[in-house]
Design a protein around this nucleic acid. Structure first.
Lengths: 208, 208
DNA sequence: GGCGCTACTGAACGGTTGTACAGTATCAGC
DNA sequence: GCTGATACTGTACAACCGTTCAGTAGCGCC
């Protein structure tokens, strides 16, 4: 009864778009781009077939919206302050947190990356956001580095971003082979020599 | 005329399989998993529609064969000796060479990674090969490291592999933003502190 | 030179794809 | 309460999907 009346509820365009984006993410997380399908998504969202075209014009429009949303959430998550943690520690903790380092999230990223080659809209979105992403990480590194060290923060930031992407790939491909702890350790394997040069001689030592 | 007689040529099962795998790779490189399609692949290979089922049983069978082939070629490429280069230098040169670091190759990898979540056969193949891949890189690191250093080669190898995967992702996503030189530099950003600890104090210095 | 194996063909199949579109129902403004 | 705007529905459609299968033809073998 309630459901019947509920079902007819009308949402604002914005809310409905968000709901459809969520459903699309869920489908992609479950089955990759092969499950990014009108039927699957509307079933997941519990709406009729015509709604996607109505709100996004086409499936490509929906995919672009999903990409934009994912990038925004990623940036927001790594930018959120974590009281009591140094900025770099906060960054790494965010990156290995379930909000970003879960298979659902990472599988959506992997799928979107795979579509970028074919989809100019996605590529434009990436180009617009990536520069800022890298710059903010480079700035973080410069702040965290000891004053004496004069390393190339842009280069380290670039390598760090690639490492994070690669950790995401491995996590997707075989989650049991790469724990959250492993990922944290990998991040420090790259950064420690630059941020903690005092211990450079004993670089072998693991950081708990 | 010639083509007509040529067309009727019969190949060994092995040769035809290789030919279809090549065609499949070409299609995936061009359009991701959406172009991994019976029609597209047989058109690329210049054969009839029924051939894929005949040789591989199903499209999944073909995809598994492609994955296996890609992994084999990857291992072979990084294992090939490069006279005059230290083992680690040879490894990195192989990784940034066009044979491995081209968009065509990397886009196939990206697509296959995206399918692993859904495809148990691919995952089994990965699990079987990854351990050996990582172990061989760890062994290379141990050989290259100065005797005094006692760092965890397995951990560095793991991080290095993730970095390489991430470089591949970035290269696919936006080739103009990541040159072969950039990739080489990123590899050394990770490895130099462990393999060249003498210069650890001046870790900032770029290696040409 | 004929025989049998099998690589190979191509039409046919039911199911799924994304989009178009005519029609319905709900809510805001008056 | 009426009206207009629009969120929403659901059928229709042509194109394409992977697989099946009966039939054809090239090649090794005797």
């Amino acid at each position: 009864m309630k459901d019947q009346t509920r079902k007819k509820a009308r949402l604002s365009a914005e809310d409905r778009r968000a709901l459809l984006e969520d459903a699309a993410c869920a489908c992609i997380a479950r089955g990759g781009i092969r499950d990014f399908t009108v039927d699957k998504i509307v079933a997941e969202a519990g709406v009729s077939r015509g709604l996607i075209t109505h709100h996004f014009g086409s499936m490509d429009g929906l995919l672009a919206a999903v990409y934009s949303r994912m990038y925004g959430e990623w940036i927001a998550a790594i930018s959120a302050p974590r009281p009591g943690l140094a900025p770099i520690d906060a960054l790494i903790e965010a990156l290995v947190s379930p909000a970003l380092f879960s298979r659902d999230v990472l599988n959506v990223w992997l799928t979107l990356w795979g579509e970028i080659t074919t989809n100019p809209v996605l590529r434009a979105e990436h180009r617009a956001r990536y520069g800022q992403y890298r710059a903010s990480i480079a700035a973080l590194l410069r702040e965290a580095a000891p004053a004496a060290a004069g390393f190339d923060a842009e280069a380290v930031a670039s390598a760090f971003i690639c490492l994070v992407d690669g950790l995401g790939v491995q996590r997707c491909v075989e989650p049991t082979l790469l724990s959250e702890t492993d990922a944290r350790a990998a991040c420090w394997t790259l950064l420690r020599p630059y941020l903690d040069p005092v211990g450079a001689g004993s670089v072998a030592k693991a950081r708990s």
